[in-house]
Computed example of a mutant assay.
Amino acid sequence: MKRIIHIVGSMNRAGAETMVMNLYRQLDRENYQFDFIYFTNNDCDYDDEIKELRGKIYRIPSKNVFSRYLKYFSLLRKLDKNTSIHSHMNINNSMYLGIAYLAGIKTRVSHCHGTEGKYHQSFLRRIYKKFSFSLIDRFATKYIACGEAAGKYLYPKVKSSEITLLPNAIDVRKFSESRVVNRNYLRNLLNLEKDVIILTQIGRLIKVKNHTFSIQFLKHLKSKGIKFHFVIIGDGELNDSLKELVNKEDLEDNVTFLGVRSDVPELLSGSDCMLMPSLHEGFPVVLVESQAIGLPSLISDTISPEVDLGLKLVVFSGLNDDFSIWEEKLLNILLQEDIKAGKISEVLTDRGFNIVESVKKLERIYG
């Protein structure tokens, strides 16, 4: 059996982590096994399932980065050299793969799950990026990206033919059949009237997800007399400040914070539209899931156009656009007819988002 150690930091319910678990569940576990390196002692959402699947969790909780690298190197030296390292730390893949090389690990996989926003960066940050790109190019034996934009970002020196595009695949059948069954899931859960528009935003409560923009947009909708309810799914460092902002804008009756949830397919199925005004993204798993369900999304044009899978379920708008433009696009979205599950399943499978095909591709990478 070949063991693959995933460097993830933690395994809570978020995009990259969910994608790894989707792959893990379908993996041929007679020949391959996933293990994980955490940089925390805290319990994580997927711990129990990882253990049920017979995966190991190695914890390196040191806050000092140099101490962490030393402990990581020491751990790798004790492992079978046929163990593979699969790093999901984006630009920081450079250090973890470089150390794996020094420890004698033969298969070293770099996986990019996102891009970087177009904002001002310090001189030191730019130097670190160039240095990291060079190290990844030197020490990775395999290059994976969730999409073309992510691949161009993290592997600027690598030929595109050497980069494996591994879409954030899902169990297409499970999601495509969910909307009909769970269409009123959120409406019943929150006891909402039939004429209330249900909007959702899923993701970590961090700056890049731009929840502040969403809340200001809600303020605009309320001023126009539009009946809506906004559901925020996820947790993060901005939890308290976002709740304060909701109260400040007198939206507490229009917004529900649900925290981290395991019933994402049902929540998406019960929504009328998903918002994603992110400052930047790679290829978010939740955008694959929403399209698989047939849920339309209104997202920022800072997100790569490749996230639109051709089902006419993704609408882009600029973060500098007036809220009236976002409002108009939202209302037009709500007039769309539902797409049949069979059509959705066919399109996603053809586009490579079927988890079964992704697992086969990954197993070929591990050898």
Rank of each mutant, 00 (worst) to 15 (best):
A149H: 13
Q336I: 13
E52L: 11
N191W: 09
V288F: 01
L124E: 15
D240T: 10
C112D: 04
I198N: 04
G147S: 10
N93C: 01
Y58P: 07
K157H: 09
K174V: 12
S176P: 03
H211L: 07
R126M: 10
D272Q: 06
Y38D: 01
I233F: 00
F131S: 00
I105F: 03
P277W: 12
F316I: 15
I4K: 06
E337C: 15
Y119D: 13
L258Y: 04
S297N: 07
D43L: 09
G9A: 06
N254T: 12
C146P: 02
S178E: 11
L70I: 03
N210H: 09
E281L: 06
L70T: 06
L124M: 14
A140V: 01
T349D: 13
S297R: 09
H6A: 01
Q26K: 11
S10G: 14
L348K: 01
H280D: 10
T302N: 12
N354S: 15
D263N: 05
E116L: 04
D350P: 02
K174A: 07
C146M: 00
I136Y: 00
L362E: 00
G104I: 00
F353V: 11
V260L: 12
Y119N: 12
F66M: 15
L23A: 11
K224P: 03
N191Y: 03
E116V: 12
K56T: 02
S10D: 08
S122K: 13
P61E: 06
S87T: 11
I344K: 02
I325E: 12
L221I: 14
G55W: 02
S178N: 10
S262M: 06
Y32S: 05
S10H: 09
V347K: 06
S223R: 07
W326M: 08
F323R: 15
V286M: 13
S271C: 13
G282V: 06
L238V: 00
L238T: 02
L102P: 14
N22S: 08
V231E: 07
E30N: 09
R108A: 05
M1K: 11
I339A: 04
D263A: 13
Y72R: 04
E52W: 03
N12I: 04
D47I: 01
F73L: 13
N12A: 08
I333Q: 13
S214Q: 04
S67F: 15
T115I: 07
N239I: 03
R126P: 04
L287C: 11
D235K: 03
L362P: 02
K174G: 09
K106G: 03
D137I: 09
S62Q: 14
R204E: 00
R68M: 05
K2I: 14
Y69I: 15
R3C: 14
F139S: 00
